[in-house]
Nucleic acid binder design. Structure first.
Lengths: 167, 167
DNA sequence: ATAAACTTTCAATAATTATTGAAAGTTTAA
DNA sequence: TTAAACTTTCAATAATTATTGAAAGTTTAT
């Protein structure tokens, strides 16, 4: 496998993994392309490389910038805007975990808490609802807290954690 | 908020969370319904409660059974099949984590490993590709290993882990 | 102020994914 | 063996989500 083949395979694999961490295919592919690029790329470059439209490129770049994964880079003397991706995988992980926690997990925790606090009318079904939503609330809250703790330790978090846990 | 309102809210909230852990809305809703139900439900019951078609119900129940989250329960003297969900959130977490690791994370790890092993032709771009796919490979592998370790400790895994990590 | 170089927006369209419902299939009881 | 009770399958359709491309917007140089 040569460089070009490997690059294509990387972009398509990483793109298909996108939905797993909650971003769409094009967005993941743009990020993948920038992630392995040795220099900042213009919108034209990205469009040409991924064969996607200008509008699509623009919108997805915007989203990636909102997430803080991609940044604009202005090259002196150049009119075009150039883009680069965060290159440190640890930092990438931190950003994604934090964003997903905020956007998706927190609201669910709130609802589960609310539901587990409804008035117990003494019926079996109400007791079950309270019990189970409470269990999910505790689990979700704990998992979220743990992920954030792990992810906020900037250095070698996974390695460190593994050593502590597995030993 | 009374029981009925709480039930509806729970099912819809949990349903919307489905995509986050990789299952579709109807599937998540069926699981949610069974999760808080005090007895096993028939296909008719599920269809009526969630207002979804027979085919949809059948297909999604099948998938949930494939995942090992829902089990058939045959009630003596009854012709219909009845369904129940795993009720223990820890066990639920273990099943989901294991399945997702197997179906989605493992294949990506394999590809990343393959890509990080291409021949270094000495060019900067190839070096960068190798370096970055290797970094992602290591991260993904470590994260996956850690999740599986955590999730296989059957008892109080999150609590235990938190104590170790935060202290 | 004007025009060239560039980016963003968004209505239209395409692609994907979920859902339906009726026909085909299966199981059980008599 | 037959028929009733039930489940599964799958082609058609609906709903959702992603993508395009051209018009509108913005910035910069002169």
């Amino acid at each position: 496998m040569n460089y070009e083949e490997a690059k294509i395979k990387f972009i398509s694999t990483w793109g298909s993994l996108g939905p797993l961490w909650g971003i769409n295919k094009a967005m993941a592919q743009i990020q993948a392309l920038l992630f392995i690029s040795t220099q900042a790329l213009s919108m034209e470059d990205i469009m040409a490389e991924l064969q996607i439209s200008r509008g699509n490129t623009s919108m997805n770049l915007r989203q990636l910038m909102d997430w803080g994964i991609v940044t604009k880079e202005l090259i002196p003397g150049e009119r075009k805007e150039y883009f680069t991706s965060e290159k440190d995988v640890q930092e990438l992980t931190r950003i994604i975990a934090k964003e997903r926690s905020r956007r998706e997990i927190q609201p669910v925790i709130k609802v589960l808490h609310e539901l587990s606090s409804i008035k117990d009318d003494g019926t079996e079904k109400t007791k079950e609802l309270i019990k189970q939503t409470k269990a999910l609330h505790d689990l979700t809250l704990n998992a979220d807290t743990m992920i954030n703790k792990l992810v906020n330790q900037k250095q070698n978090w996974i390695t460190k954690s593994l050593i502590k846990l597995i030993k």
